[in-house]
């Protein structure tokens, strides 16, 4: 479990996170919020990519930023998928994922097998030798997911992973994420309610740099007593609508 308390991050003098509190239990947590709400900053904060001005993060009760060795250990168990994957177009798919494995700290003996497993998990096992520039947008997203998955990290932070995908690609992608979730802690930032319904066990709503709602999806759905479409509308209204009110 990842817990965070009173997170405060200032960028350009503005408080992007302003006392955010919350926890990420095992399973998929959907991080909802409007553009600029601080979703990406929260994910970067939990990855240790931005300096916290205040607050603490605890991973299984331990502060991962307390020392270099603790941070290294944490990052070995952390898969991160940025909004815009930064791959070199001329690189081959397998090499990209193997590089991600190396960055994760995997040993030479496990690097190759781990990359193959991760690519197989995202159905790219037949594109190993393809160059990244020849892939579709959806396939590149899956490469990025494979990079996040390589080495089977316990924690996955996925920043708007379905942005730019068509409905079929999104469904396929979310199926993959759903299949990974049971024994992992996954945080998926999104502003698509369809994503929430498809994969999330929990919902956290971020607004003004704070977590303003944190509830299990089942609880929200049970409260509406309607079908999924209505549930989605109700969900949007009850969560984001309430936030804007």
């Amino acid at each position: 479990m990842i817990e965070f308390q009173d997170l405060e991050v200032r960028l350009g003098g503005r408080a992007v996170l302003d006392g955010a509190n919350g926890s990420l239990p095992t399973g998929v947590t959907a991080l909802l919020g409007r553009n600029g709400a601080g979703k990406t900053t929260l994910i970067r904060s939990l990855s240790g990519l931005v300096r916290l001005h205040a607050g603490t993060v605890r991973v299984d009760g331990v502060d991962p930023f307390v020392s270099h060795s603790a941070l290294t250990a944490y990052r070995r168990s952390l898969g991160f998928m940025p909004q815009d994957p930064p791959f070199v177009g001329s690189a081959r798919v397998l090499d990209v994922v193997r590089y991600a494995a190396w960055l994760r700290g995997l040993t030479k003996s496990t690097e190759h097998a781990s990359a193959m497993t991760a690519l197989s998990d995202v159905d790219l096992g037949d594109h190993l030798r393809a160059r990244v520039r020849t892939l579709s947008g959806g396939q590149r997203r899956r490469v990025a997911l494979a990079c996040a998955l390589v080495g089977e990290p316990r924690f996955l932070l996925l920043d708007e992973p379905t942005a730019g995908l068509d409905p079929d690609q999104r469904d396929h992608f979310l199926d993959r994420v759903r299949g990974l979730a049971p024994d992992r802690t996954v945080l998926v930032s999104t502003h698509l309610m369809e994503d929430v319904l498809a994969v999330a066990d929990h919902i956290a709503v971020l607004d003004g740099g704070r977590i303003v709602r944190s509830v299990p999806v089942a609880e929200v759905l049970a409260g509406t007593g309607e079908g999924p479409a209505t549930a989605m509308r109700e969900l949007r209204r009850s969560l984001l609508g309430d936030v804007s009110a």
Partner: peptide, 17 residues
């Protein structure tokens, strides 16, 4: 150079190396 370009830098920095 490519390791220092913004998007890549962040992605690589999330690793343990």
């Amino acid at each position: 150079v490519v390791q220092r370009q913004d998007r890549h830098r962040e992605w690589a920095a999330a690793g343990s190396r």
